[in-house]
Design a protein around this nucleic acid. Sequence first.
DNA 1: CTTTTTATAGTCACTCCGACTATAAAAGGG
DNA 2: CCCTTTTATAGTCGGAGTGACTATAAAAAG
Lengths: 245, 245
Amino acid sequence: MSDGYDGYDPHAYEPFAVAADLAVFTVRSGSLHVLLIRRGQEPYAGAWALPGGFVLPRESAETAARRELAEETGLADEVVAALHLEQLRTYSEPDRDPRMRIVSVAFTALVPDLPEPAPDGGGDAAHARWVPVADAGELAFDHAAILADARSRIGAKLEYTCLATAFCPPEFTLGELQAVYETVWSTPLDRPNFRRKVLATPGFVEAVPGAARLTGGRGKPAALYKAGPATALHPPLLRPEGHRR
Amino acid sequence: MSDGYDGYDPHAYEPFAVAADLAVFTVRSGSLHVLLIRRGQEPYAGAWALPGGFVLPRESAETAARRELAEETGLADEVVAALHLEQLRTYSEPDRDPRMRIVSVAFTALVPDLPEPAPDGGGDAAHARWVPVADAGELAFDHAAILADARSRIGAKLEYTCLATAFCPPEFTLGELQAVYETVWSTPLDRPNFRRKVLATPGFVEAVPGAARLTGGRGKPAALYKAGPATALHPPLLRPEGHRR
DNA sequence: CTTTTTATAGTCACTCCGACTATAAAAGGG
DNA sequence: CCCTTTTATAGTCGGAGTGACTATAAAAAG
Protein backbone atom coordinates (compact mmCIF):
# COMPACT_ATOMS: atom_id res chain seq x y z
CA MET A 1 0.00 0.00 0.00
CA SER A 2 1.10 3.53 -0.63
CA ASP A 3 0.39 6.29 1.78
CA GLY A 4 -3.05 7.80 1.94
CA TYR A 5 -2.38 10.64 -0.42
CA ASP A 6 -1.09 8.66 -3.34
CA GLY A 7 -3.08 7.16 -6.16
CA TYR A 8 -6.23 9.04 -5.35
CA ASP A 9 -8.60 9.76 -8.20
CA PRO A 10 -11.06 12.34 -6.96
CA HIS A 11 -13.45 11.70 -9.82
CA ALA A 12 -13.86 8.12 -8.75
CA TYR A 13 -15.78 9.31 -5.70
CA GLU A 14 -18.88 11.31 -5.20
CA PRO A 15 -17.38 14.77 -4.73
CA PHE A 16 -17.35 16.69 -1.51
CA ALA A 17 -18.55 20.22 -1.25
CA VAL A 18 -16.87 22.52 1.24
CA ALA A 19 -18.85 25.27 2.90
CA ALA A 20 -18.07 28.10 5.29
CA ASP A 21 -20.61 29.01 7.96
CA LEU A 22 -20.49 31.90 10.39
CA ALA A 23 -21.66 32.51 13.91
CA VAL A 24 -21.57 36.31 14.15
CA PHE A 25 -22.35 37.63 17.59
CA THR A 26 -23.24 41.02 18.98
CA VAL A 27 -24.39 42.34 22.32
CA ARG A 28 -27.51 44.48 22.17
CA SER A 29 -29.98 45.53 24.82
CA GLY A 30 -28.43 43.27 27.42
CA SER A 31 -28.48 39.99 25.58
CA LEU A 32 -26.23 38.09 23.24
CA HIS A 33 -27.51 38.05 19.67
CA VAL A 34 -26.46 35.96 16.72
CA LEU A 35 -26.94 36.79 13.05
CA LEU A 36 -29.30 34.33 11.36
CA ILE A 37 -30.85 34.09 7.93
CA ARG A 38 -34.14 32.52 7.01
CA ARG A 39 -33.82 29.82 4.43
CA GLY A 40 -35.86 30.30 1.29
CA GLN A 41 -35.58 26.81 -0.18
CA GLU A 42 -35.53 23.17 0.73
CA PRO A 43 -34.16 21.58 2.71
CA TYR A 44 -35.23 23.36 5.87
CA ALA A 45 -37.16 25.99 3.91
CA GLY A 46 -38.42 28.64 6.31
CA ALA A 47 -36.02 27.57 9.04
CA TRP A 48 -33.38 29.84 10.49
CA ALA A 49 -29.76 29.06 9.71
CA LEU A 50 -26.32 30.49 10.18
CA PRO A 51 -25.14 32.57 7.24
CA GLY A 52 -22.73 30.73 4.99
CA GLY A 53 -22.27 29.03 1.68
CA PHE A 54 -19.97 27.10 -0.56
CA VAL A 55 -16.27 27.70 -0.86
CA LEU A 56 -15.46 28.44 -4.50
CA PRO A 57 -12.58 26.70 -6.27
CA ARG A 58 -10.11 29.54 -5.85
CA GLU A 59 -11.11 30.68 -2.37
CA SER A 60 -9.90 29.79 1.08
CA ALA A 61 -12.62 29.01 3.59
CA GLU A 62 -12.07 32.34 5.29
CA THR A 63 -12.39 34.28 2.06
CA ALA A 64 -15.60 32.42 1.32
CA ALA A 65 -16.90 33.24 4.78
CA ARG A 66 -16.36 36.95 4.24
CA ARG A 67 -17.91 36.88 0.80
CA GLU A 68 -20.97 34.98 1.96
CA LEU A 69 -21.40 37.23 4.93
CA ALA A 70 -21.39 40.30 2.73
CA GLU A 71 -23.74 38.73 0.21
CA GLU A 72 -26.22 37.33 2.66
CA THR A 73 -26.45 40.03 5.25
CA GLY A 74 -25.75 43.28 3.41
CA LEU A 75 -23.27 44.32 6.09
CA ALA A 76 -21.09 47.12 4.77
CA ASP A 77 -18.05 45.90 2.88
CA GLU A 78 -15.65 47.82 5.14
CA VAL A 79 -17.21 46.15 8.14
CA VAL A 80 -16.90 42.69 6.65
CA ALA A 81 -13.33 43.27 5.45
CA ALA A 82 -12.18 44.50 8.86
CA LEU A 83 -14.00 41.79 10.78
CA HIS A 84 -11.90 39.54 12.97
CA LEU A 85 -12.86 36.04 11.92
CA GLU A 86 -11.80 33.11 14.01
CA GLN A 87 -12.00 29.56 12.88
CA LEU A 88 -14.20 27.56 15.24
CA ARG A 89 -13.96 24.02 13.89
CA THR A 90 -14.97 21.91 10.95
CA TYR A 91 -18.12 19.81 10.87
CA SER A 92 -17.81 16.75 8.69
CA GLU A 93 -20.37 14.17 9.74
CA PRO A 94 -21.42 12.35 6.55
CA ASP A 95 -25.14 13.02 6.93
CA ARG A 96 -25.11 16.55 8.23
CA ASP A 97 -26.69 17.75 4.99
CA PRO A 98 -29.46 15.63 3.44
CA ARG A 99 -28.63 16.60 -0.14
CA MET A 100 -25.00 15.66 -0.43
CA ARG A 101 -21.73 15.42 1.35
CA ILE A 102 -20.91 18.87 2.68
CA VAL A 103 -17.99 19.59 4.98
CA SER A 104 -18.43 22.91 6.70
CA VAL A 105 -15.72 25.09 8.17
CA ALA A 106 -17.33 27.23 10.88
CA PHE A 107 -16.11 30.70 11.85
CA THR A 108 -16.93 33.00 14.71
CA ALA A 109 -16.94 36.80 14.64
CA LEU A 110 -17.79 39.46 17.21
CA VAL A 111 -19.15 42.83 16.17
CA PRO A 112 -20.38 45.91 18.01
CA ASP A 113 -24.09 46.61 18.08
CA LEU A 114 -24.77 47.41 14.43
CA PRO A 115 -27.87 48.65 12.69
CA GLU A 116 -30.19 45.90 11.48
CA PRO A 117 -28.78 44.15 8.38
CA ALA A 118 -29.60 46.49 5.49
CA PRO A 119 -33.04 45.55 4.24
CA ASP A 120 -32.67 48.25 1.58
CA GLY A 121 -29.83 46.24 0.07
CA GLY A 122 -32.59 43.94 -1.09
CA GLY A 123 -32.10 40.30 -1.88
CA ASP A 124 -30.63 37.99 0.70
CA ALA A 125 -30.08 40.64 3.29
CA ALA A 126 -33.82 40.95 3.71
CA HIS A 127 -33.78 37.51 5.31
CA ALA A 128 -31.00 38.27 7.78
CA ARG A 129 -31.78 39.19 11.38
CA TRP A 130 -30.16 39.52 14.78
CA VAL A 131 -31.76 36.96 17.07
CA PRO A 132 -31.10 36.53 20.80
CA VAL A 133 -29.22 33.27 21.15
CA ALA A 134 -31.64 32.24 23.85
CA ASP A 135 -34.44 32.42 21.27
CA ALA A 136 -32.57 30.72 18.44
CA GLY A 137 -34.16 27.34 19.13
CA GLU A 138 -34.06 24.84 16.29
CA LEU A 139 -31.86 25.71 13.35
CA ALA A 140 -31.32 24.12 9.97
CA PHE A 141 -28.78 21.30 9.54
CA ASP A 142 -26.46 20.99 12.55
CA HIS A 143 -26.32 24.73 12.98
CA ALA A 144 -27.72 24.59 16.51
CA ALA A 145 -24.69 22.53 17.51
CA ILE A 146 -22.36 24.94 15.74
CA LEU A 147 -23.99 27.85 17.52
CA ALA A 148 -23.62 26.13 20.88
CA ASP A 149 -19.95 25.45 20.23
CA ALA A 150 -19.38 29.03 19.15
CA ARG A 151 -21.14 30.38 22.21
CA SER A 152 -19.09 28.27 24.53
CA ARG A 153 -15.90 29.24 22.73
CA ILE A 154 -16.45 32.97 23.02
CA GLY A 155 -17.34 32.64 26.69
CA ALA A 156 -14.00 30.94 27.27
CA LYS A 157 -12.10 33.40 25.09
CA LEU A 158 -13.28 36.37 27.12
CA GLU A 159 -11.40 34.87 30.03
CA TYR A 160 -7.94 34.96 28.56
CA THR A 161 -8.08 37.36 25.60
CA CYS A 162 -8.96 41.00 25.07
CA LEU A 163 -11.66 40.01 22.60
CA ALA A 164 -14.45 41.66 24.55
CA THR A 165 -13.54 45.03 23.05
CA ALA A 166 -14.59 43.64 19.65
CA PHE A 167 -18.18 43.81 20.93
CA CYS A 168 -17.79 47.51 21.72
CA PRO A 169 -17.82 50.58 19.51
CA PRO A 170 -14.47 52.32 18.90
CA GLU A 171 -14.87 54.31 22.11
CA PHE A 172 -16.62 52.81 25.07
CA THR A 173 -16.99 53.11 28.83
CA LEU A 174 -15.82 50.51 31.30
CA GLY A 175 -19.47 49.98 32.15
CA GLU A 176 -20.16 49.00 28.57
CA LEU A 177 -17.21 46.62 28.54
CA GLN A 178 -18.40 45.09 31.77
CA ALA A 179 -21.87 44.65 30.27
CA VAL A 180 -20.28 42.60 27.49
CA TYR A 181 -18.78 40.22 30.01
CA GLU A 182 -21.96 40.04 32.04
CA THR A 183 -24.05 39.38 28.98
CA VAL A 184 -21.85 36.69 27.49
CA TRP A 185 -21.31 34.99 30.83
CA SER A 186 -24.84 35.58 32.13
CA THR A 187 -23.48 36.56 35.49
CA PRO A 188 -23.11 39.89 37.30
CA LEU A 189 -19.63 41.19 38.09
CA ASP A 190 -18.47 43.52 40.82
CA ARG A 191 -17.93 46.90 39.25
CA PRO A 192 -14.89 48.16 41.20
CA ASN A 193 -13.12 44.85 40.89
CA PHE A 194 -13.78 44.63 37.17
CA ARG A 195 -12.47 48.14 36.75
CA ARG A 196 -9.34 47.38 38.73
CA LYS A 197 -8.61 44.25 36.73
CA VAL A 198 -9.10 45.88 33.33
CA LEU A 199 -7.02 48.93 34.16
CA ALA A 200 -4.28 46.83 35.71
CA THR A 201 -3.84 44.81 32.51
CA PRO A 202 -1.38 46.73 30.32
CA GLY A 203 -2.66 47.33 26.81
CA PHE A 204 -6.19 46.05 27.36
CA VAL A 205 -7.80 49.51 27.15
CA GLU A 206 -6.40 53.00 26.70
CA ALA A 207 -7.98 56.13 28.12
CA VAL A 208 -9.30 58.65 25.64
CA PRO A 209 -8.12 61.84 27.33
CA GLY A 210 -10.75 64.36 28.30
CA ALA A 211 -13.59 62.44 26.76
CA ALA A 212 -16.68 61.39 28.63
CA ARG A 213 -19.80 59.72 27.44
CA LEU A 214 -22.53 62.31 27.16
CA THR A 215 -25.42 59.93 27.26
CA GLY A 216 -28.88 61.05 28.08
CA GLY A 217 -28.52 58.68 31.01
CA ARG A 218 -28.38 59.67 34.62
CA GLY A 219 -25.45 59.53 36.95
CA LYS A 220 -21.89 60.67 36.67
CA PRO A 221 -20.59 60.58 33.07
CA ALA A 222 -18.12 57.76 32.48
CA ALA A 223 -14.66 58.16 31.00
CA LEU A 224 -14.16 56.78 27.53
CA TYR A 225 -11.61 54.15 26.56
CA LYS A 226 -10.51 52.52 23.35
CA ALA A 227 -9.12 49.05 22.73
CA GLY A 228 -5.41 48.79 23.45
CA PRO A 229 -2.74 46.82 21.61
CA ALA A 230 -2.82 43.81 23.93
CA THR A 231 -4.41 40.66 22.67
CA ALA A 232 -3.97 38.25 25.56
CA LEU A 233 -5.00 38.65 29.18
CA HIS A 234 -2.35 37.54 31.68
CA PRO A 235 -3.36 36.58 34.21
CA PRO A 236 -6.82 35.72 32.87
CA LEU A 237 -10.09 37.28 33.96
CA LEU A 238 -11.85 34.18 35.22
CA ARG A 239 -15.61 34.05 35.43
CA PRO A 240 -17.05 33.30 38.85
CA GLU A 241 -17.12 29.69 39.98
CA GLY A 242 -20.04 27.70 38.67
CA HIS A 243 -20.55 29.81 35.56
CA ARG A 244 -18.30 27.86 33.27
CA ARG A 245 -19.57 25.59 30.53
CA MET B 1 -29.90 35.87 -5.77
CA SER B 2 -30.75 33.08 -3.46
CA ASP B 3 -28.69 32.20 -0.47
CA GLY B 4 -25.36 30.52 -0.86
CA TYR B 5 -26.55 26.98 -0.39
CA ASP B 6 -29.23 26.95 -3.05
CA GLY B 7 -28.86 26.04 -6.68
CA TYR B 8 -25.42 24.57 -6.29
CA ASP B 9 -24.35 21.90 -8.72
CA PRO B 10 -21.23 20.28 -7.34
CA HIS B 11 -20.43 18.63 -10.65
CA ALA B 12 -20.17 22.01 -12.30
CA TYR B 13 -16.97 22.65 -10.33
CA GLU B 14 -13.67 20.93 -10.07
CA PRO B 15 -14.27 18.81 -6.99
CA PHE B 16 -12.64 19.34 -3.63
CA ALA B 17 -10.90 16.60 -1.82
CA VAL B 18 -11.02 16.60 1.96
CA ALA B 19 -8.13 15.21 3.94
CA ALA B 20 -7.39 14.62 7.60
CA ASP B 21 -3.86 15.16 8.89
CA LEU B 22 -2.51 14.47 12.35
CA ALA B 23 0.10 15.98 14.59
CA VAL B 24 0.72 13.19 17.11
CA PHE B 25 3.07 14.18 19.91
CA THR B 26 4.96 12.29 22.53
CA VAL B 27 7.62 13.12 25.10
CA ARG B 28 10.68 10.90 25.03
CA SER B 29 14.15 11.34 26.41
CA GLY B 30 13.50 14.93 27.40
CA SER B 31 12.27 16.33 24.13
CA LEU B 32 8.97 16.69 22.35
CA HIS B 33 8.63 14.34 19.39
CA VAL B 34 6.12 14.29 16.58
CA LEU B 35 5.15 11.33 14.44
CA LEU B 36 6.17 11.82 10.82
CA ILE B 37 6.11 9.66 7.72
CA ARG B 38 8.44 9.79 4.78
CA ARG B 39 6.63 10.33 1.52
CA GLY B 40 7.21 7.71 -1.14
CA GLN B 41 5.80 9.54 -4.14
CA GLU B 42 5.57 12.92 -5.77
CA PRO B 43 4.91 15.59 -4.84
CA TYR B 44 7.47 15.99 -2.07
CA ALA B 45 8.79 12.45 -2.57
CA GLY B 46 11.34 11.71 0.13
CA ALA B 47 10.17 14.58 2.31
CA TRP B 48 8.76 14.14 5.77
CA ALA B 49 5.06 14.82 6.28
CA LEU B 50 2.40 14.52 8.92
CA PRO B 51 0.45 11.29 8.71
CA GLY B 52 -2.94 11.70 7.08
CA GLY B 53 -5.01 11.00 4.03
CA PHE B 54 -8.29 11.47 2.27
CA VAL B 55 -11.63 11.40 3.99
CA LEU B 56 -13.76 8.73 2.37
CA PRO B 57 -17.34 9.40 1.29
CA ARG B 58 -18.95 7.84 4.35
CA GLU B 59 -16.45 8.98 6.96
CA SER B 60 -16.20 11.98 9.23
CA ALA B 61 -12.84 13.70 9.28
CA GLU B 62 -12.12 12.27 12.70
CA THR B 63 -12.88 8.73 11.61
CA ALA B 64 -10.59 9.21 8.63
CA ALA B 65 -7.86 10.52 10.90
CA ARG B 66 -8.01 7.39 13.05
CA ARG B 67 -8.05 5.08 10.06
CA GLU B 68 -5.11 6.79 8.39
CA LEU B 69 -3.13 6.83 11.59
CA ALA B 70 -3.60 3.09 12.01
CA GLU B 71 -2.79 2.38 8.37
CA GLU B 72 0.26 4.58 8.12
CA THR B 73 1.94 4.07 11.43
CA GLY B 74 1.05 0.57 12.50
CA LEU B 75 0.11 1.78 15.97
CA ALA B 76 -1.98 -0.83 17.70
CA ASP B 77 -5.70 -0.58 16.95
CA GLU B 78 -6.61 -0.32 20.63
CA VAL B 79 -4.23 2.58 20.98
CA VAL B 80 -5.64 4.38 17.96
CA ALA B 81 -9.23 3.76 19.00
CA ALA B 82 -8.66 5.07 22.52
CA LEU B 83 -6.64 8.06 21.38
CA HIS B 84 -7.96 11.45 22.34
CA LEU B 85 -8.07 13.37 19.07
CA GLU B 86 -8.61 17.08 19.13
CA GLN B 87 -9.43 19.09 16.09
CA LEU B 88 -6.82 21.76 15.54
CA ARG B 89 -8.11 23.70 12.58
CA THR B 90 -8.75 23.39 8.87
CA TYR B 91 -6.30 24.47 6.21
CA SER B 92 -7.95 25.52 3.00
CA GLU B 93 -5.62 27.77 1.04
CA PRO B 94 -6.30 27.02 -2.64
CA ASP B 95 -2.70 26.18 -3.53
CA ARG B 96 -1.65 24.27 -0.48
CA ASP B 97 -1.40 21.09 -2.56
CA PRO B 98 0.10 21.33 -6.05
CA ARG B 99 -1.98 18.50 -7.48
CA MET B 100 -5.50 19.59 -6.76
CA ARG B 101 -7.74 21.41 -4.37
CA ILE B 102 -7.38 19.70 -1.00
CA VAL B 103 -8.91 21.00 2.19
CA SER B 104 -7.29 19.45 5.20
CA VAL B 105 -8.76 19.07 8.66
CA ALA B 106 -5.87 18.85 11.11
CA PHE B 107 -6.00 16.96 14.40
CA THR B 108 -3.74 16.80 17.41
CA ALA B 109 -3.15 13.83 19.66
CA LEU B 110 -0.91 13.22 22.67
CA VAL B 111 0.42 9.77 23.49
CA PRO B 112 2.78 8.31 26.09
CA ASP B 113 6.23 7.25 25.02
CA LEU B 114 5.44 4.29 22.79
CA PRO B 115 7.70 1.79 21.09
CA GLU B 116 8.83 2.80 17.64
CA PRO B 117 5.98 2.45 15.08
CA ALA B 118 5.85 -1.24 14.26
CA PRO B 119 8.26 -1.86 11.42
CA ASP B 120 7.22 -5.50 11.51
CA GLY B 121 3.74 -4.46 10.44
CA GLY B 122 5.37 -3.78 7.11
CA GLY B 123 4.01 -1.43 4.51
CA ASP B 124 3.43 2.20 5.34
CA ALA B 125 4.46 1.85 8.94
CA ALA B 126 8.03 1.28 7.88
CA HIS B 127 8.13 4.94 6.85
CA ALA B 128 6.80 6.31 10.14
CA ARG B 129 9.16 7.69 12.78
CA TRP B 130 9.18 9.77 15.91
CA VAL B 131 11.16 12.93 15.21
CA PRO B 132 12.07 15.66 17.72
CA VAL B 133 10.02 18.69 16.73
CA ALA B 134 13.16 20.78 16.90
CA ASP B 135 14.62 18.62 14.12
CA ALA B 136 11.49 18.48 11.97
CA GLY B 137 12.66 21.27 9.68
CA GLU B 138 11.00 21.48 6.30
CA LEU B 139 7.95 19.32 5.80
CA ALA B 140 5.81 18.54 2.77
CA PHE B 141 2.92 20.83 1.82
CA ASP B 142 2.04 23.29 4.59
CA HIS B 143 2.70 20.69 7.25
CA ALA B 144 5.37 22.76 8.94
CA ALA B 145 2.76 25.44 9.60
CA ILE B 146 0.30 22.83 10.88
CA LEU B 147 2.96 21.44 13.17
CA ALA B 148 3.76 24.89 14.51
CA ASP B 149 0.09 25.58 15.17
CA ALA B 150 -0.29 22.23 16.91
CA ARG B 151 2.77 22.80 19.06
CA SER B 152 1.56 26.18 20.16
CA ARG B 153 -1.90 24.79 20.90
CA ILE B 154 -0.69 22.00 23.15
CA GLY B 155 1.58 24.40 25.03
CA ALA B 156 -1.42 26.57 25.77
CA LYS B 157 -3.64 23.61 26.63
CA LEU B 158 -1.27 22.39 29.31
CA GLU B 159 -1.97 25.63 31.12
CA TYR B 160 -5.66 25.18 31.66
CA THR B 161 -6.39 21.48 31.10
CA CYS B 162 -5.25 18.20 32.61
CA LEU B 163 -4.04 17.04 29.21
CA ALA B 164 -0.45 16.54 30.36
CA THR B 165 -1.39 13.14 31.79
CA ALA B 166 -2.07 11.97 28.22
CA PHE B 167 1.70 12.07 27.68
CA CYS B 168 2.26 9.76 30.64
CA PRO B 169 1.83 6.00 31.03
CA PRO B 170 -1.15 4.80 33.09
CA GLU B 171 0.85 5.18 36.29
CA PHE B 172 3.44 7.89 36.61
CA THR B 173 5.38 9.91 39.14
CA LEU B 174 4.98 13.62 39.71
CA GLY B 175 8.51 14.01 38.44
CA GLU B 176 7.48 12.46 35.13
CA LEU B 177 4.47 14.73 34.91
CA GLN B 178 6.65 17.72 35.62
CA ALA B 179 9.05 16.61 32.89
CA VAL B 180 6.13 16.74 30.44
CA TYR B 181 5.47 20.37 31.31
CA GLU B 182 9.13 21.25 31.21
CA THR B 183 9.63 19.56 27.88
CA VAL B 184 6.61 21.06 26.17
CA TRP B 185 7.24 24.52 27.59
CA SER B 186 11.05 24.33 27.34
CA THR B 187 11.38 25.85 30.76
CA PRO B 188 12.33 24.43 34.15
CA LEU B 189 9.76 24.44 36.95
CA ASP B 190 10.23 24.49 40.69
CA ARG B 191 9.62 20.98 41.91
CA PRO B 192 7.93 21.62 45.30
CA ASN B 193 5.71 24.29 43.79
CA PHE B 194 4.70 22.07 40.88
CA ARG B 195 3.89 19.30 43.30
CA ARG B 196 1.80 21.58 45.49
CA LYS B 197 -0.15 22.88 42.54
CA VAL B 198 -0.91 19.49 41.03
CA LEU B 199 -1.95 17.93 44.34
CA ALA B 200 -4.08 20.94 45.23
CA THR B 201 -6.13 20.62 42.04
CA PRO B 202 -8.93 18.16 42.80
CA GLY B 203 -9.17 15.34 40.29
CA PHE B 204 -5.97 16.13 38.40
CA VAL B 205 -4.10 13.08 39.69
CA GLU B 206 -4.99 10.31 42.11
CA ALA B 207 -2.50 8.53 44.32
CA VAL B 208 -1.96 4.82 43.67
CA PRO B 209 -1.80 3.60 47.26
CA GLY B 210 1.31 1.81 48.36
CA ALA B 211 2.94 1.91 44.96
CA ALA B 212 6.30 3.42 44.26
CA ARG B 213 8.37 3.49 41.14
CA LEU B 214 11.10 0.93 41.37
CA THR B 215 13.34 2.42 38.77
CA GLY B 216 16.96 1.56 38.51
CA GLY B 217 17.48 5.25 39.19
CA ARG B 218 19.03 6.70 42.26
CA GLY B 219 17.38 8.63 45.00
CA LYS B 220 14.20 8.11 46.96
CA PRO B 221 11.56 6.19 45.02
CA ALA B 222 8.66 8.39 43.96
CA ALA B 223 5.03 7.69 44.67
CA LEU B 224 2.89 6.70 41.72
CA TYR B 225 -0.21 8.53 40.55
CA LYS B 226 -2.78 7.99 37.85
CA ALA B 227 -4.84 10.51 35.90
CA GLY B 228 -7.89 11.73 37.78
CA PRO B 229 -11.36 12.52 36.45
CA ALA B 230 -10.80 16.26 36.14
CA THR B 231 -10.40 17.70 32.69
CA ALA B 232 -9.95 21.41 33.36
CA LEU B 233 -7.46 23.16 35.59
CA HIS B 234 -8.95 25.95 37.70
CA PRO B 235 -7.12 28.09 38.37
CA PRO B 236 -4.75 27.42 35.49
CA LEU B 237 -1.12 26.39 35.80
CA LEU B 238 0.49 29.28 33.97
CA ARG B 239 3.93 28.95 32.46
CA PRO B 240 6.52 31.43 33.67
CA GLU B 241 6.50 34.90 32.16
CA GLY B 242 8.28 35.15 28.85
CA HIS B 243 7.74 31.55 27.85
CA ARG B 244 4.45 31.98 26.06
CA ARG B 245 4.03 31.96 22.31
C1' DC C 1 29.33 5.43 56.89
C1' DT C 2 29.40 9.39 54.10
C1' DT C 3 28.14 11.59 49.89
C1' DT C 4 25.04 12.14 46.20
C1' DT C 5 20.60 12.07 44.33
C1' DT C 6 15.82 12.39 44.21
C1' DA C 7 11.35 12.92 46.71
C1' DT C 8 8.64 15.30 49.88
C1' DA C 9 7.42 18.78 53.60
C1' DG C 10 7.23 23.33 55.07
C1' DT C 11 8.05 28.62 55.33
C1' DC C 12 7.53 33.42 53.98
C1' DA C 13 6.48 37.28 51.36
C1' DC C 14 4.15 39.12 47.62
C1' DT C 15 0.32 39.44 44.28
C1' DC C 16 -4.19 39.00 42.95
C1' DC C 17 -8.88 38.91 43.80
C1' DG C 18 -13.54 38.86 46.08
C1' DA C 19 -16.28 41.51 49.19
C1' DC C 20 -17.12 45.62 50.85
C1' DT C 21 -17.21 50.81 52.06
C1' DA C 22 -16.66 55.58 50.72
C1' DT C 23 -16.67 59.55 47.78
C1' DA C 24 -17.75 62.18 43.37
C1' DA C 25 -20.59 63.86 39.76
C1' DA C 26 -24.39 63.92 37.25
C1' DA C 27 -30.06 63.89 36.71
C1' DG C 28 -34.77 64.27 38.75
C1' DG C 29 -38.30 65.62 42.07
C1' DG C 30 -40.02 68.17 45.56
C1' DC D 1 -32.47 75.08 45.71
C1' DC D 2 -31.98 71.00 48.48
C1' DC D 3 -32.38 66.16 48.66
C1' DT D 4 -32.69 61.71 46.68
C1' DT D 5 -31.37 58.60 43.09
C1' DT D 6 -28.14 56.89 39.94
C1' DT D 7 -23.85 55.90 38.06
C1' DA D 8 -18.71 56.34 38.20
C1' DT D 9 -14.56 56.04 40.68
C1' DA D 10 -11.39 55.41 44.80
C1' DG D 11 -9.88 52.78 48.50
C1' DT D 12 -9.61 48.99 52.25
C1' DC D 13 -9.14 44.33 54.09
C1' DG D 14 -8.61 39.42 54.34
C1' DG D 15 -7.83 35.19 52.05
C1' DA D 16 -6.16 32.20 48.22
C1' DG D 17 -2.47 31.18 45.20
C1' DT D 18 2.18 31.29 43.94
C1' DG D 19 7.40 32.15 43.42
C1' DA D 20 11.57 31.56 45.91
C1' DC D 21 13.57 29.21 49.20
C1' DT D 22 14.94 25.91 53.21
C1' DA D 23 14.62 21.48 55.50
C1' DT D 24 14.00 16.60 55.92
C1' DA D 25 13.52 11.67 54.18
C1' DA D 26 14.81 7.74 51.60
C1' DA D 27 17.16 5.56 48.36
C1' DA D 28 21.87 4.41 45.56
C1' DA D 29 26.99 5.12 44.93
C1' DG D 30 31.52 5.28 46.68
